[in-house]
Each structure stands twice: as structure tokens, then as C-alpha cells.
Design a binder for these strands. Structure first.
Length: 768
DNA sequence: CCGTCGAGGCCCGAC
DNA sequence: GCCTCGACGG
């Protein structure tokens, strides 16, 4: 074996080096949070390519997000040179699944009945389809919730059960309902020439079953396979990986059972716990040294996770400094909580010159983000929300994508209906007209979209029964525009096609330039256009297909753009997996939220649910490098009603000596003591020590070092200046208070009243 | 065909 | 409390 380049091993500890160098045979790396897992993965890939001469295309690396895949590839190329990793198979399970299917259009069509222009249905599409399926089998969507059907169907698919297999497992009436809906759902998917997310994993396995030679080809291709976040793989993913690794058996799995947080989507922790049974010759490597967080944070995390029974015994340690105390704080309600977070962030930015992008605010449920966002919106602090209403879920963006999908895959009736509903071109076509075209199309053995296209020429000339009057000309227009755009697709770039689409569909014209809301929506449509530019280099015909695949696989975490403006990150605990921030706030550390109420309700039947919640908290805590804030409230509005709350039982698991508590004046120390009694009486709670009942005023004495993005020196303002603020618009500075190295400005905005802003932070343009 | 209004569900998490 | 969906009237 050639000597590894010193640089590839430089700075790695013994265990990390072993993980990089043990290239032959199965290896399981149990990697605690912050233990340099990503470094190991990237250095290992670099080592394989550079030192062992492995071709990049012979390596398959599975990551948890597309973003992680991109970053990992970049880091590898940084180690061994730009372009040196090109050809590397790296991506999420889903993107690799779609790649298998796209690479073999012939066999996929032949064996799976999926035509080459198949589309991927997202959450909303799946929901609509599930609802159709419920109705189609004669049930009421109000009684048989499509969402529940979907989650059952998804669970079945994750276990590799097709409708026929599922029927055999039926035990009660409810299962029978699911079985019927599942069968119909699959029928509708096939009819639409579409597949859902789960199918992206299931279909490749079916493909390999049907065409063993194909599997052998991939087995021969992948000399080395690396899988990140192995603890969160489900059965289908497990089967796929084991099948692919069967020939060379160079499977490198990295994971952490303590960070398993996806049992609800059928992640099976047994995949990682049973690795040794699957591969008795496996090398086990543990990465237990945390390089990310201060000792206090590591200790808090370690003590918390020790309370779980479902785990591999392991100690997380660190050589880092003690750092600051973990700050635990009670607020009276969610508004005060949000205000505290914003105020504290402002203070950190102001006094300690922390950049917003060093800060994350985390929560258990997306619903919590709303109040937080309100507070941020009122402040001058830049923020972004990961998840929530995603860009691609916005109505206007979905409208355009739906029409693009119709052009690409005429069988996608869901998208056709959306187009008719939301595009001006669909105006005048009601359910009646659609039904008629649908029947006509069925008679003529074609799709409804093709029906509109085929009928258009004759409709232009005369009433073609059954389409008459208003619906006749409307249907004619729709059919001919679709036909025109499809012709254009063959010769134009995607952006040109986009321009033609928003023009001829009348979509662009439907936005009112006087309406702020419309203009906001139109700007989103234009942002979509910017997206398309990346695909203009591809040959027409191929660009649209590639774009549509990609757009369906964008995850929340992927949409976190770095660079440009520094922003505070608002993110769910789930989405925060794999990320790190110097400063982390975890909000809503309460019974009902963390652990979430559903886990509490099921506690007696399924104690594992509570353990998963604890792991989720653990994931959150271990995202923090320097500073960790935990907040909970005395009461919170839920479903529009105020309810008083109890602090999370998990708080009692934290080591007293690393946590500093701050009560609010309203609740005070007394109530905190009461609450601590409530904790100790809670089932399943082991207290590690009483939390100090005293609440001293908070003034942590610390500073984040090495701040790369420290605010630039701010311009000087003077009273009387007319200014412009990106959010609040025009205003006048009425008062200025000089601070040590900043100015506090009082500004009267024309529209938004009086605000107090900091000169260094507010992005003001001086008008006069 | 389009807008308005009330009822009811919703909020556990995501590719 | 907000959003979505279906019923109803213009």
C-alpha cells in the first residue's frame, strides 16, 4: 500500500486515522456528535482516490442531504485537487435512487412500467392522490384521513410491502381499508406515470430483482460504499445498501445510535445495532472525542443521553475548555420567549460582535416558528427559516412547476388540473368540461392532456360535441398553448421556455403591479426563473427532465444558502441534524413539546418514543459549540387557547453544575422550586440533582473568539437625517444616543411608527 | 365561474 | 388562531 500523503492524515486522531485507513472489508464507525465524522468521510474518500488510485466512479457515498453531498465533494476536491473527485457517486438515497432509474430507462419501462418521462410526486401531490384514492374506493376523506393513509402506505413501502404483500398482513378492519386505498393509490400513481418519494428507493430494488444482471453491474461498479447517518436508515435503504455492497463488501457505515431521530419514518435502529451480525468480520471504530463543543455542553449532552436505556454504552468526552454555563430560562409565554431570544441575540451581536450566522434558534414543532418569526420581523435582525413554507411549496412557484410538468409528462393529470385551476389559460374550463375531455380521452386511449391537445384544431373550427360555447374556445386555447410550448421545449433553453410559458399561459399578465402581494409573488416566480438558468447549458429536451427531478428532491436543509447576508437560522431540531453553530437557542423545552405530547400519550405502550425525544434534545444540544440557551415557558397558546405548561422532564437530566437558571420575575424562584418537585414526581425521571432555586441576574461573561464576520464599522448618522430601511421603508432619525462603538437610533418611519435601531446593524440608506 | 363565509381540523418530524 | 375546503349567492 502506498504511503498516504501526510496531509490526508494530518490533524486526525488515532481513531480517525484508523477509520480513514481501514479501507478493506466492512467498517462501522460509531461517531459521537462533533467527533470529526465528516472529516473522516472526506479524508477517506480522498485517500481512496489519491493514495489507492481508486477511480471516483467506483465510490458510492450516501449522505443525508444534498447540501451535505455538495459540501463533502468540495472538501474532497480541496484535499486532492479540483476535478479529482468528478465521477464520484455522492448524494442522498433518493437522488441515487432516481439516478438508477434514469440510467436504465428501457428496463424501467419494461419491468416497472414507468415511462422515461415519469415525474416524482412530492408531499402535496401525494396527499391529493391519496385523497383521490380514498374517494375512488368509496370512502369518505373526512372519516378516512388521507394523511393517515399516506403514512401507513409509506410505512408499508419502507418495509418493502407492495399492495399484494400488504393484504396478507391485514389484521383488522382498518388495515383492510389501508390495503384498499394503497392499491388504488398505486394504480393512480402508475396512471399518472409518477412515483412518490418511497418509490425512489423501492423501485430500484424491484428493478434489481427483475434484472439481476443490472444489479451485478452496479455491484461491480461500486468497489467502495460509504453511508453517513446509518442510524437513520430504514429497511429499504438497508436492503439497497447491502445488495450493492454484496460483491466487494467494502461497506463503510457511519452513525450514532444516540442521534437516531427518524423512527417515525421507519428508520430502524437495528440496522446499526445489528451491523456486527450482518458483517461478523466488521471492524468497529468509535469516535468519542468531541471537538465541537465546550466541556459544559458536552457534559450536559452526555448526562442527558445516559438516561436512555436503548443505547450502546459510550462516553462522550472533550479536551475543550469548560466554556460558559448552559443558560436555562423560564419565560411567561411564547411571546416573551421569542422576545427574549431576539433581545439576547441583539445583545450578543452588539456587545460581543457575534455575526447572525453564528446563531441558530431551534424548536420541536414548526408551529413554534411563527411567533419567533414575528419577533424577528419586528427587529432589525436578519433571519431565515429553514423549512416552514418552502419556496417550492409557494402557490405561484407550484403553479409554474405544475405546467412545466404537464409539458413534460402529459399523463400527470394532477398537474394538468392545477394548471387549469390556477393559470389564466385554464379559465373557462370547469369540472364539466374537464370531465368531458377526460371521457373523450379515455375513449381514444390517451391522457386528458393529450385530449385537450388533440381536440384543439377541430375546436378552433366548430363546436365539437360535447364542448360548446365558452368552454369550447377555452379548451381550444389550452390545447393549442400546450402544443406550442411542447414544440418550443425542443429548441429553447429552459429560461426561454419559462418566458414563453408565463407569457402564453397569461400567468405573467395576471399579476397586478399595484398590489404589493402580487409583486412579492411575481418575484418568487422570477426567482424560480433564476433557478432554471443553471440548466440552460443542458440540451433542450434534457434540461426540463433534469430540472424536474432535482426540484422534487430539494430538502429543507438544502435550501439553507450560505454567504450573502448573515442571518440567524430558525430551524426544527430534526432539520438541525448534522449542523453546528457557535450559539444555539433551544426553545420550548416543555412537556408537550419536548417531549412532544404524542410521545407522552404513547409513553405506556411505547417508551421508546420518549427516548427518541430525548435523543432529539441531545441532537439539539450537541449542535452548540460555545453557548447554549434553553428556554421554556410558564404557559403557551396552543390552537388559539392559552394553556399552562410544565418544564420538560429532560431538564432534570442535566447536570446542575453546568446549568445556570434564570427565572422570570413573574414566576420567580419559588415557582421554579415547585416545578422541580413536579419533575421528580414525574414517571421515568431520575433527578441528577436539584436545580438551584436562586435566580441570579443573567450576565454571562464571555466572548466568542475568532469572529470572522464581525460587523463592519458602521457609518455615522445624525439626527434629522432621512433614511431608508429595507423592511420599514422611509423614515427620519429623531434621536441618537452614542454608545461605546455604536449609535442607538430612534427613527420615525412613515409607515411603521417609531423604532429603536442600532446603527451598526440596521441597513440604512441615507436619503438626505 | 368567482368570491365570500363558516365549519372544522390543525401541530410531531421530512425526502 | 389560522388555513383549507365546501356550500352558497352574485
Amino acid at each position: 500500500m502506498p504511503n498516504p500523503t501526510a496531509s490526508l492524515l494530518h490533524g486526525l486522531n488515532d481513531a480517525q486515522q484508523q477509520a480513514v485507513l481501514t479501507t478493506q472489508g466492512p467498517v462501522l464507525v460509531v461517531a459521537g456528535p462533533g467527533s470529526g465524522k465528516t472529516r473522516v468521510l472526506t479524508h477517506r474518500i480522498a485517500h481512496l482516490i489519491q493514495d489507492l488510485g481508486v477511480m471516483p466512479e467506483n465510490i458510492l457515498a450516501v449522505t443525508f442531504t444534498n447540501k451535505a453531498a455538495g459540501e463533502m465533494k468540495q472538501r474532497v476536491e480541496k484535499l486532492i485537487g479540483a476535478g479529482a473527485a468528478s465521477g464520484l457517486w455522492i448524494g442522498t438515497f433518493h437522488s441515487i435512487g432516481v439516478r438508477f432509474l434514469r440510467q436504465n430507462p428501457g428496463i424501467v419501462a419494461d419491468r416497472l412500467g414507468l415511462l422515461p418521462n415519469f415525474v416524482i410526486y412530492d408531499d402535496a401531490d401525494q396527499m391529493a392522490l391519496a385523497k383521490q384514492a380514498v374517494v375512488a374506493v368509496g370512502l369518505d376523506p373526512k372519516q378516512v384521513a388521507p394523511r393517515r393513509m399516506l403514512s401507513r402506505i409509506s410505512a408499508a413501502k419502507s418495509e418493502m410491502l407492495d399492495p399484494d404483500d400488504f393484504v396478507k398482513t391485514v389484521e383488522k378492519y382498518d388495515d383492510e381499508v389501508v390495503a384498499r386505498v394503497y392499491r388504488e393509490y398505486q394504480r393512480l400513481l402508475k396512471k399518472a406515470n409518477a412515483i412518490d418519494f418511497d418509490d425512489l428507493l423501492v423501485m430500484p430494488i424491484r428493478l434489481f430483482d427483475a434484472a439481476p444482471a443490472l444489479l451485478e453491474r452496479y455491484q461491480a461498479l461500486f468497489h467502495y460504499i460509504l453511508v453517513d447517518e446509518y442510524q437513520d436508515t430504514n429497511r429499504v435503504q438497508y436492503i439497497l445498501v447491502s445488495a450493492l455492497a454484496d460483491r466487494y463488501r467494502n461497506l463503510f457505515a457511519v452513525g450514532d445510535p444516540d442521534q437516531s431521530i427518524y423512527a417515525w419514518r421507519q428508520a430502524d435502529i437495528r440496522n446499526i445495532l445489528g451491523f456486527n451480525q450482518d458483517y461478523p468480520d466488521a471492524t468497529l471504530i468509535k469516535l468519542e472525542t468531541n471537538y465541537r463543543s465546550t466541556r459544559r455542553i458536552v457534559e450536559a449532552a452526555d448526562r442527558l443521553i445516559r438516561e436512555n436505556s436503548q443505547r450502546i454504552e459510550r462516553t462522550l468526552r472533550t479536551d475543550n475548555d469548560d466554556g460558559e454555563m448552559v443558560s436555562l430560562r423560564e419565560l411567561s409565554d411564547e411571546r416573551h420567549e421569542a422576545r427574549f431570544v431576539v433581545d439576547e441575540i441583539r445583545r450578543l451581536m452588539n456587545i460581543h460582535h457575534v455575526s447572525p450566522n453564528q446563531i441558530a434558534v431551534m424548536y420541536r414543532t414548526t408551529a413554534q416558528s411563527r411567533v419567533l418569526e414575528e419577533s424577528f420581523r419586528m427587529s432589525e435582525i436578519n433571519y431565515r427559516i429553514v423549512g416552514g413554507l418552502r419556496f417550492y411549496e409557494r402557490r405561484e412557484v407550484k403553479d409554474v412547476i405544475a405546467m412545466l410538468r404537464v409539458l413534460h409528462n402529459p399523463a400527470d393529470e394532477l398537474s394538468l388540473l392545477r394548471t387549469i385551476e390556477n393559470m389564466p389559460i385554464g379559465r373557462g374550463i370547469g369540472p364539466k368540461a374537464i370531465d368531458q375531455v377526460r371521457s373523450w380521452s379515455a375513449l381514444n386511449q390517451t391522457t386528458t392532456t393529450e385530449g385537450f391537445v388533440a381536440l384543439a384544431p377541430s375546436l378552433a373550427l366548430h363546436d365539437s360535441p360535447p364542448l360548446t360555447g365558452a368552454s369550447r374556445s377555452a379548451a381550444q386555447k389550452l390545447g393549442s398553448v400546450i402544443a406550442q410550448l411542447r414544440e418550443l421545449e425542443k429548441e429553447l433553453t429552459l429560461t426561454q421556455l419559462f418566458d414563453a410559458l408565463v407569457d402564453r399561459s397569461g400567468y405573467q399578465g395576471s399579476f397586478n403591479h399595484e398590489s404589493e402581494e402580487d409583486m412579492e409573488r411575481w418575484s418568487n416566480v422570477l426567482e424560480l426563473r433564476t433557478d432554471l438558468e443553471d440548466f440552460d447549458a443542458l440540451p433542450p429536451g434534457e434540461a426540463l427532465a433534469t430540472y424536474l427531478d432535482q426540484v422534487q428532491l430539494v430538502s429543507d436543509a438544502d435550501t439553507m444558502k450560505d454567504g450573502s447576508v448573515p442571518q440567524v437560522t430558525l430551524i426544527t431540531l430534526h432539520s438541525a441534524k448534522g449542523l453546528e453553530f457557535p450559539i444555539v437557542f433551544i426553545t420550548g423545552v416543555e412537556e408537550g413539546l419536548l417531549p412532544v405530547s404524542r410521545a407522552i400519550e404513547n409513553e405506556a405502550v411505547d417508551p421508546n418514543a420518549i427516548e427518541e425525544e430525548r435523543r432529539l434534545f441531545y441532537v439539539g444540544i450537541t449542535r452548540a459549540e460555545k453557548l447554549l440557551y434553553l428556554t421554556y415557558t410558564a404557559g403557551r397558546t396552543r390552537y388559539g387557547r392559552y394553556e399552562s405548561t410544565i418544564p420538560s422532564r429532560f431538564l432534570a437530566n442535566l447536570p446542575v453544575e453546568s446549568v445556570k437558571t434564570h427565572g422570570t420575575r413573574a414566576s420567580g424562584a419559588g415557582s421554579l422550586a415547585q416545578r422541580s418537585r413536579a419533575w421528580s414526581s414525574m414517571p421515568g425521571t431520575k433527578r441528577t440533582g436539584p436545580l438551584p432555586a436562586s435566580a441570579r441576574p443573567a450576565e454571562p461573561d464571555w466572548a466568542v473568539r475568532n469572529v470572522p464576520d464581525a460587523a463592519p464599522p458602521s457609518p455615522t448618522y445624525a439626527a434629522g437625517m432621512q433614511i431608508f430601511h429595507p423592511k420599514f421603508g422611509e423614515g427620519q432619525i429623531t434621536e441618537i444616543a452614542e454608545r461605546r462603538d455604536d449609535q442607538e437610533l430612534v427613527i420615525e418611519f412613515k409607515r411603521h411608527g417609531t423604532k429603536r435601531l442600532l446603527g451598526s446593524l440596521a441597513k440604512l440608506d441615507v436619503i438626505s
